[in-house]
């Protein structure tokens, strides 16, 4: 049974046009990506795939992605003028188009971002109505919507780590909605992407961060 729609999906969302998938969804992918990076990016290379590749200018997806990198919300009227705001913020960016990427969703976007905290590669899909999925981070498969709260963990591939993290989250009274786990190879670096219905307590995050086999964690609260 599909989840029931809200009346605010019928009368809404309030958004900047022209298209929920090519404008609003693109803003949200970029807003998710800067949270994965963990800071304001200084440079951004943006690749538009498939259906986006030829129409990104006409639909304003280029302005939308830059607006998202500046953390503008989907109903922010500054989206149209985002290039000007990017210049003021000192954000360097470039666009590239790739067509016929048959393994990818029709509306796919890749963001290579770098900033004071480091760099990251994020691949996102815009699935219509402003709904998105982040499907890859630094080459690791992921699957989160940024509608819920997401915990991203970089850790050693040790036995019991998944069960342990799930247990810690359960003790914080959080329900796990989705979980994606993968690793570079046996006993190598592993990534967990955990989507939760409710927010994690800062204390729980700090505890996880200080475990000896954890390399890094990034917490992404839901994005409007």
């Amino acid at each position: 049974m599909a989840e029931k729609s809200s009346i605010f999906d019928m009368i809404g969302p309030v958004m900047i046009g022209p298209s929920s998938s090519h404008t609003a969804g693109v803003v949200r992918i970029a807003r998710a990506a800067i949270r994965v990076l963990g800071c304001q990016p200084e440079t951004a290379e943006i690749t538009f795939y498939n259906s986006f590749a030829r129409t990104y200018e006409g639909h304003g997806s280029d302005r939308a992605v830059i607006a998202g990198l500046l953390d503008f919300k989907t109903d922010d009227i500054r989206i149209k003028e985002s290039f000007r705001y990017a210049a003021e913020a000192g954000l360097q960016y470039s666009f590239k188009s790739v067509g016929n990427a048959s393994a990818m969703h029709p509306n796919t976007l890749k963001l290579n971002l770098s900033g004071p905290n480091g760099q990251v590669e994020v691949v996102g899909q815009s699935r219509g109505g402003g709904v998105i999925r982040i499907v890859e981070v630094d080459g690791f498969p992921s699957d989160f919507s940024a509608n819920l709260h997401t915990l991203m963990i970089e850790a050693d591939d040790v036995k019991g780590s998944i069960a342990f993290i799930a247990d810690v989250i359960a003790h914080d009274d959080c329900n796990i909605a989705t979980m994606t786990v993968s690793r570079r190879g046996k006993n190598q670096l592993a990534r967990q992407f955990i989507e939760m219905d409710t927010a994690l307590k800062p204390l729980t995050l700090e505890y996880i961060r200080h475990l000896s086999w954890i390399k890094n964690i990034t917490y992404i609260p839901n994005i409007e």
Partner: peptide, 21 residues
């Protein structure tokens, strides 16, 4: 036209039909 020109609208029910209501 506001929708087509990157202005703020209500998708009702969609952005493509946002002038009607």
């Amino acid at each position: 036209e506001v929708n087509s020109c990157m202005g703020r609208v209500v998708a009702a029910p969609t952005a493509g039909a946002s002038g009607i209501l």
